[in-house]
Amino acid sequence: MRADTAASPVPVAPAGLSRRARRFVEMNGIRVPQQGIRRHRDAWIEHGVPASEIDRAAAFQDRWGGLALPPAPFYEGGPRILDADCPEGSAAEGWSFPAGSCRVSMAYGFMIGPDGAFGIDAYHWTPLHASADGWVESLALADHAGRWARTVTRIKGKDVESLDLHGYEPVPEVQGLTDTWWRGKDSLIALYRGEAIGFDAPQCLEAHVYGGLDEWGLHGG
């Protein structure tokens, strides 16, 4: 659906997501009307923004613009509504654009980087997932794991580094970069490293361990 057309409050999940993520978007998401960004194209080009970068932001808006999802379990809930805006950067450093406004006042924003990664612009740029799709997949997995786990354990700071991931395998659909998900015999582990790396603050490391999962709880998608 194009972001500059009327929106249905009940979203249709974009193609290419896992079944779990499609179900999460369509059952928990709301699509709110958006003005669209193509109307700013000429003005942005006059201010030096490359047309290719505007097209990239518009493609994001077509796919995700106006989608409101439940809060993430970290990063103060993540973007309130996925929504692109004017790209910023330079030819030397690369161009990024906002991925959506924050739910609360924060020291960083959510961005789509030069290579399409979804991340946070904190003390420095920190990519979390290889794409916005990966971010949405991670939200869906957290929602799924939270529903089916018998126990949820939160580990913070230096204790995160002591987690033993032997016998675990990465969950590929979240496209993890700084943040990753790991699947074990009867548990899932989410590692949130973004704030720790973005602010050079190891105390911000956090892991969520979802235990007591059966086969459906481990995969379910």
Rank of each mutant, 00 (worst) to 15 (best):
G157N: 03
I197H: 13
W135G: 01
W216G: 02
W181P: 02
R193Y: 06
G221Q: 11
G184Q: 08
H129N: 13
A117P: 14
G167Q: 10
H124R: 13
L205H: 08
T153E: 13
L191V: 04
D159K: 12
G221D: 15
W216T: 11
A140S: 13
P202M: 03
M111R: 14
L213Q: 07
G194F: 06
A140P: 01
S131T: 15
K185H: 13
H166T: 15
G198A: 02
D186C: 08
T178V: 04
D121H: 15
P127D: 04
T151N: 14
L218P: 00
H144C: 03
D179I: 05
Q203W: 11
I197F: 12
L165Q: 15
I120L: 09
L128S: 04
P114G: 02
F118Q: 08
A149E: 02
G221H: 12
S131W: 03
R193M: 05
S138M: 12
R193P: 03
L188T: 02
A190R: 04
V174K: 03
L191M: 13
L177D: 09
A149P: 04
D179F: 12
A207K: 03
D179G: 09
P114K: 11
E195M: 10
A207S: 07
G211N: 08
A117F: 09
I112G: 01
W125N: 01
A201L: 08
I197M: 12
E206P: 03
D121M: 11
H166C: 00
L139H: 07
G184N: 10
Y192M: 14
T153I: 11
G221W: 10
E137V: 01
G217R: 08
G198L: 02
D121A: 15
D159F: 03
V174P: 03
G212P: 00
G211C: 05
Y123P: 01
E173Q: 13
G176D: 06
W182M: 03
Y123R: 15
P127K: 00
H166E: 15
H219E: 11
M111H: 15
G217V: 02
